[in-house]
């Protein structure tokens, strides 16, 4: 199993990944990444990122959103969402997939 789905889709079969998991590791991007390739909002705001372990599937790298940096810890339950990356000159808001702390246990 790989992520993301490669362009060569002939050799791969799309699989839906779990949308909930636990935080495997994390850090905070405190300085603006080199641009290009980075195309985030201006001015730069530090953001969290990390690896989320999706049970039975794989561990996926993602931006982390809607979380206090100090609240990040290994094993934190996370859920899939989207986060606004930037607004293009034509007003189009570009979104990225992201994970945020799970709001309930999903039980």
């Amino acid at each position: 199993m790989v992520f993301p789905l490669p362009d060569d889709i002939e050799s791969f079969e799309p699989v839906e990944l779990p949308s909930r998991g636990t935080l495997w590791s994390y850090t905070v991007q405190r300085f603006p990444p080199k641009s290009p390739p980075y195309r985030g909002a201006e001015p730069f705001e530090p953001f969290a990122l990390g690896y989320v372990e999706l049970p039975g599937a794989l561990i996926v790298e993602s931006r982390l959103t809607e979380v206090n940096f100090d609240a990040l810890r290994l094993g934190l339950p996370m859920e899939l969402t989207t986060a606004a990356l930037r607004t293009d000159p034509d007003g189009c808001v570009v979104l990225s997939y992201a994970f945020r702390p799970a709001r309930d246990t999903g039980a």
Binding site: P33, K34, L74
Partner: peptide
């Protein structure tokens, strides 16, 4: 890697060192 990987700010070597170390 796809372009979005860099656009979203994940194409930064120091993040890897930090993530491996944090765990």
């Amino acid at each position: 890697l796809p372009e979005w990987y860099g656009e979203t700010g994940l194409m930064v070597t120091t993040q890897f060192f930090a993530a491996k170390l944090r765990r």
